[in-house]
């Protein structure tokens, strides 16, 4: 049974096209670079068009107004990198704010409230992760269920808005940090710390690399003897934790808890992650990209408020167009590399 003519492997494979040494990174970073370029292009365009837009405070204000979304997007990035999705985050933000507001109203101390909220979010994430992994159910369905559950729990706590009057929270909310002539809020610091920790975890720990491996090929990761179960469940815990933290930041930002807040915020987070260059199929992307994705979304809103004549629905339209463009870019990009 000798195969006389060319064995079935294609001759296209044999002259191994070895990539040139050293300079191999641009392909991976390309989507993130595209997002950064887009961000500065938008900033430049705004600066030319509107007076006062060119101030660094514009960017800092975007950070201030979206610090909770950055935290949310960071958690979402972990999940999407494994090829999953977490639809529950918006509801968990609302639930966290509700828990915080009502617990503070009934006289809990601020640190206790923070711990309780973060624990609740993490446990919710853990439960969803366990169901997703051990029952092999699509993350979409499980987190959709989690979304309804968390939203429902908000109403159980209260149908009315609960104001937050706790001093620790109010002073955190009104606090500013001066940087020269400009300012940011403590929430921004929290978001940036989360971002840095996330980047370190993703790139410098085994857990982080396993997240990428699972997203690349879960089957391969399993056969390589990696801790797939722990990793897959872990990302939902992280996402739950980040949602709860974002909920706290949101409660501080609005100084209240209300059942109907943060509706659809999960979609903003997903949009930010995708615009930030992370592939929805998993395995490729960076948290930094997601943060820039949030900034792009925020900057669109700045455009609208600076313009004054544009209606707020232009935000949604622009996000929609951007999302489509970025997904198309990614499609072309992955086609070329595979």
């Amino acid at each position: 049974m000798t195969t006389v003519i060319a064995p079935p492997e294609s001759p296209a494979n044999s002259p191994a096209p070895r990539p040139s040494r050293g300079f191999t990174f641009p392909a991976r970073f390309l989507p993130v670079i595209a997002t950064v370029v887009l961000f500065f292009a938008m900033f430049g365009a705004g600066s030319i068009r509107y007076e006062g837009f060119s101030s660094p405070q514009t960017i800092l204000s975007v950070l201030v107004d979206n610090s909770f979304l950055i935290v949310l997007a960071v958690g979402m990035t972990f999940v999407i990198l494994t090829g999953g999705i977490d639809l529950s985050v918006g509801s968990v933000v609302a639930l966290s704010a509700m828990i915080a507001a009502s617990a503070l109203r009934s006289g809990w101390s601020a640190p206790l409230v923070v711990v309780a909220v973060l624990l609740t979010g993490s446990v919710l994430g853990l439960l969803m992760g366990l169901v997703i992994h051990y029952f092999e159910i699509q993350p979409f369905i499980v987190t959709l269920a989690g979304m309804f559950l968390a939203r429902g729990l908000c109403y159980v706590i209260s149908v009315d808005s609960i104001p937050i009057k706790n001093e620790t929270f109010t002073s955190f909310a009104s606090g500013t940090i001066e940087i020269g002539d400009y300012f940011i809020t403590p929430s921004v610091i929290v978001a940036l710390v989360v971002l840095v920790i996330a980047a370190i975890v993703l790139h410098m720990t085994r857990f982080g690399r396993t997240v990428y491996a699972v997203g690349g090929s879960e089957q391969s990761a399993l056969l390589m003897g990696l801790a797939v179960a722990r990793t897959k469940i872990g990302v939902y815990v992280i996402s739950g934790f980040c949602s709860a933290l974002a909920g706290l930041l949101y409660a501080i930002y609005t100084l209240s808890g209300y059942s109907l807040t943060a509706v659809g915020m999960e979609l903003d987070a997903i949009a930010a992650v995708v615009i930030g260059g992370t592939l929805l199929t998993g395995g490729s992307g960076f948290v930094l990209g997601s943060a820039v994705g949030v900034l792009v979304l925020g900057l669109i809103q700045s455009f609208i408020s600076f313009d004054g004549t544009l209606s707020s629905w232009w935000t949604k339209i622009t996000i929609g167009v951007l999302l489509l463009v970025f997904v198309l870019i990614q499609r072309l990009f992955t086609r070329r590399t595979v």
């Binding site: 410098m204 085994r206 690399r209 491996a213 690349g216 090929s217 003897g225 990696l226 395995g283």
Partner: peptide
Amino acid sequence: VNLCTNLTVAENMLLGREPRSLGRIDT
């Protein structure tokens, strides 16, 4: 081939056994 094409050659060879220092992967 049961490897992850989205990672580097070195990562694929050492996934799960990466050399670490101070808890971080020593790339």
